[in-house]
Design a protein around this nucleic acid. Sequence first.
RNA 1: GCCCAAGUGGCGGAAUGGUAGACGCAGGGGAUUCAAAAUCCCCCGAUGGCAACAUCGUGAGAGUUCGAAUCUCUCCUUGGGCACCA
Length: 843
Amino acid sequence: MSRFEPREIESKWQDAWDEAGVFTARRDESKPKYYVLEMFPYPSGRIHMGHVRNYTMGDVIARYKNSCGFSVLHPMGWDAFGMPAENAAMERGGHPATWTYDNIADMRGQMKPLGLSIDWSREFATCDPEYYGQQQSMFIDFMDKGLVYRKNAVVNWDPVDMTVLANEQVEDGRGWRSGALVERRELTQWFFKISDFSEELLDALDGLDNWPEKVKLMQRNWIGKSRGLQFAFDRTDGGDAIEVYTTRPDTLMGASFVGISPDHPIAKQLEAENPEVAAFVAECRKGGTTEEAIETAEKLGYDTGIKVKHPLNPNWELPVWIANFILMDYGTGAIFACPAHDQRDLDFCRKYDLPVTDTFFALDDPKPVENEAFVPPKTDKVKWVNHFAGLDEATGEEAINTTIDFAENAGWGQGVTKFRLRDWGLSRQRYWGCPIPVVHCEDCGVVPEKKENLPVELPKDVTFDKPGNPLDRHPTWRDCACPTCGKPAKRETDTMDTFVDSSWYYARFTAPNAATPTNMADAEYWMNVDQYIGGIEHAILHLLYSRFFARAMQICGHLPEKAVEPFDALFTQGMVTHEIYQTRDENGRPVYHLPEDVTDGKLADGTEVEIIPSAKMSKSKKNVVDPVNIIEAFGADTARWFVLSDSPPERDVEWTASGAEAAYKFLGRVWRMANDIADLEGEGKGDEDLQRAMHKAIHEVTMGIESFGFNTSVAKLYAYANAIQKSKAGAETKKLAMKTMAQLMAPMTPHLAEEVWSVLGGEGLVATAAWPKADEKMLVEDTVTMPIQINGKRRSELKIAKDLPKEEVEKLALADEAVIKALAGGQPKKLIVVPGRIINVVV
RNA sequence: GCCCAAGUGGCGGAAUGGUAGACGCAGGGGAUUCAAAAUCCCCCGAUGGCAACAUCGUGAGAGUUCGAAUCUCUCCUUGGGCACCA
């Protein structure tokens, strides 16, 4: 017999699939459709094991659904705009477009050998003018519907390079290239009005039954609906009152000071008048724009000298401080601080020696707050100190509602609902993105470009030798005619956030060549995405933006109403990790080594390496395994089988060389079994047992695929292979068992499955064969083994008929030797019989 | 700092309120072989015991339950996100 040769098998069957065109998605109204989509990749140039895992999972679903009779759409494309292309141009010269399209060609070449059931005829890249032109057209539609506007927003500003930095380009508060201390600076930017949809995006989460709870919870918290009280503090100097918003109005009697953001209008006014304030505010603006940077920065305050009157007692004056931790973007940019019940306020008050007043205590512990704020859950009852609305014992929730009613009745405050969700700032001061299709005209202002002039294409003649946006300094690109009055005007040079590109690609796949963003008939048929698969790192931004975009597209007539929630089911898969191998150079700095250079913990020259526990594969740590090498050594099926086998899909999987070898060995074993069984003839023994094992395997493997438990499907297939191998059944039964094995393995190891199928005389391609059905009758066991527990510990067991009445089971249990011994002649305190599961005797 | 997860043998994991450790890896023993590779069979949580068996055991601590890896609370560790990485 010849050997298992994955390379020959795999290219042979890939050709066969191509020839039969089995993966071309067809709009077939006579069939139910199934749209499976994995988050499309950024074209970095190399595929990595994370891609292999992600796309293999999607492929299992796509192939399985295809076998179940669905018309399947399983497309692939490229999230092709973004910073790395510009960085490459800066570092190595060349053009971002060349770099990107070369990378796409390389990655496509690396992906094809995986044998994924992708309809490659629908492929596109978001940097194709055909794609981003449609995106520009939608941007203009969104403008028409009032979903787009401009306002000022803060960016990371590098004062040396005179350029805007992405958050990732800020390291420890400094620009990554210049090393200069980064400042927060305001710039006029384009925004999508996602906040118009806050309530809707929040409420609709309840309908997403097939999304992970954790993702919905993260989005709920991100949208952050809160109810609170808005009211004004009157100033003693007669200046403009200070509006504050608070979610804890019930703690108003514990107010210590009023705090305003460094970007608050009052702070800005003082900044202009008072050099000391200007210096303080400048200090506050140091550092990056991320919430993390702001929250973890040292808390700084400045007493403005302004005083305000407490709304409940005009004789009670509170000082107004500027504080660096107050965000202008949230609420009104001003707060009152209640240090007794907020740790951050308390730390601030202790630092600047401001008063701390308790407003409530725990029911059983009236201890004043010292350096730890008392913050019980809002659902806990607490005891109030002279509450102004007359409360004595009440929960925080009750107190908040009572206080809002009290303030509204008294006329000094208003209950309001606010959301944490901010509008989506889409402006980027960068070249390699979709140009925002608007024109600045001296007479007409900011106006959209005419649709017939789309796409507004990126100019090709640009250089990256200087920091900043090449579009800004291009000699002619900005010049254009005003679409309204025809006079000379200037193009907008901001490009779009790459999240815009990925917010509608799923819709474009339904009609990738349409002359409009989508084609309604195609969108009607293919939408929604039935199964979306991607990393948990996209739980909030990408998924929330896509949900917004689907709504905006629906409003503009680009998607049917049913598609406002574009992803029916979501699955978030884990990462592929690997151990890190490290030595140290003469200065003690770590030096990393590729896994392929390490054998038994040693380098080729015998140096021992330090082994650091597994982490996400990354080039900088060199703990990467190139799928191309694995496919070359073992074949695509082995890579696919391995990434599915060891870990549950939602968790990280650790790549190990021994695991990959084990996968390869198993596939070889299946191949040999198939060839052995193909030659088998005649009768045998135990046919029914093997048939039962077969139906059990069909049932269990199917359940595993349906529930995204691919690792358990794999385990069941191992067990089934063992059962076939041990069985002495006749040739016919064994051949059927083995053909079923091929079908069950086909979604995971499609090439081997085709080979096994054909060796055993299967008809046509296993890829198009109907999925096997388990016979319910074959799954039922007549007798069951029931464990007997005594006081919750397993002590004995009982083999009984499955449908034996409860009373009979009790009798048999009480007659068990171990039970008799434990009872020592007495009566059991309690006897629990869970039919078919367990017996527990309490003595 | 805030939000969300995860933690089970030497290792990856199974079991989602009912026999903890399925299946696989590593390890040990055996068969086959002149020998090796490949392959096949058996054993394999810890402690004690010749054994039957007993005790302990799912990050730590408490709680609910006849019964907890699974539910609740507190803590620890690791990972993801924090609006310009994609």
